[in-house]
């Protein structure tokens, strides 16, 4: 099939970018979306044009490296990562608009590649349990109710892709943060640092320039791992608790 691609091209962080249009023929419906872009890039290289830069690594939906705004939807029309999106979700003759994540906290590095190091800094601000190697007690010394473990797991599946930020009209990273707060907060091991964790992470989130949440729910709808809005409620709850405890 044949598709028309409108792609954001921007040589580097300092330059201004613009949308460019490319026609691509011979696209097979078995291709993944990124393989389609690979084919485009081979074409561009053959023509002596700079290939389109985009991020991907695992290409199996787990590393969180990929992420494109496709026709106005983060990761495109299916509930999955960009790398797991296949061309059978499009039809012959379609026009496909491809943009990078737009968030001032995720500056564009080149074309469709953005800098998500803000997420690392949010984790640094408290997204962990402090336990030095070797000091852990025997694993069975603290039983964890199965349901708690399942709930923790369900939200620990966040891949840090940033689609929630990209989709949020406020550019908030609350879903990402809430997922981590809930993951660690569901487990007995996560209790001692519950207050400092939430306060630190939220402060870093704000300092990075992410917007505040208005609970409108675009984030969950875009999340490839279907992290539910509950986690933001948990995040808020934990912050209130910290406020009450005078943090």
């Amino acid at each position: 099939m044949k598709v028309t691609l409108k792609i954001w091209r921007q040589p580097d962080a300092a330059s201004k970018g613009a949308m460019h249009t490319y026609e691509l023929d011979g696209v097979s419906s078995d291709m993944s979306f990124l393989e389609m872009l690979d084919v485009l890039n081979e074409d561009l290289i053959a023509k002596g044009e700079d290939p389109v830069a985009f991020d991907s690594d695992c290409r199996e939906g787990i590393c969180g490296m990929c992420g494109l705004m496709i026709n106005g939807q983060a990761h495109g029309p299916e509930v999955t990562t960009t790398c797991q999106l296949h061309m059978r979700s499009f039809k012959d003759g379609d026009e496909i608009v491809i943009e990078p994540w737009r968030s001032d906290a995720f500056p564009v590095i080149k074309d469709l590649v953005v800098d998500r190091s803000a997420f690392d800094r949010i984790i640094q601000a408290g997204g962990y349990i402090s336990v030095n190697t070797g000091s852990a007690p025997e694993a069975h010394s603290v039983p964890v109710p199965r349901d708690d473990a399942i709930r923790a797991f369900n939200v620990a599946t966040c891949i840090g892709c940033g689609a929630c930020v990209a989709a949020c009209p406020n550019g908030s990273a609350s879903l990402f943060m809430g997922a981590k707060i809930t993951h660690l907060g569901e487990l007995p091991q996560g209790q001692p640092e519950r207050d400092t964790r939430v306060v630190g992470m939220v402060a870093q989130h704000d300092a990075e320039g992410f917007g505040g949440c208005t609970n409108i729910g675009e984030c969950t709808a875009a999340c490839p791992k279907e992290i539910p809005l509950d986690v933001i409620s948990r995040l808020n709850w934990d912050l209130h608790a910290a406020l009450r405890h005078g943090r």
Partner: peptide, 17 residues
């Protein structure tokens, strides 16, 4: 919120809100 996204999308759909 306005400062969090100064460069707007060319195309943006609302899905859930």
């Amino acid at each position: 919120a306005r400062g969090a996204r100064t460069q707007r999308y060319v195309m943006k759909k609302n899905l859930a809100s």
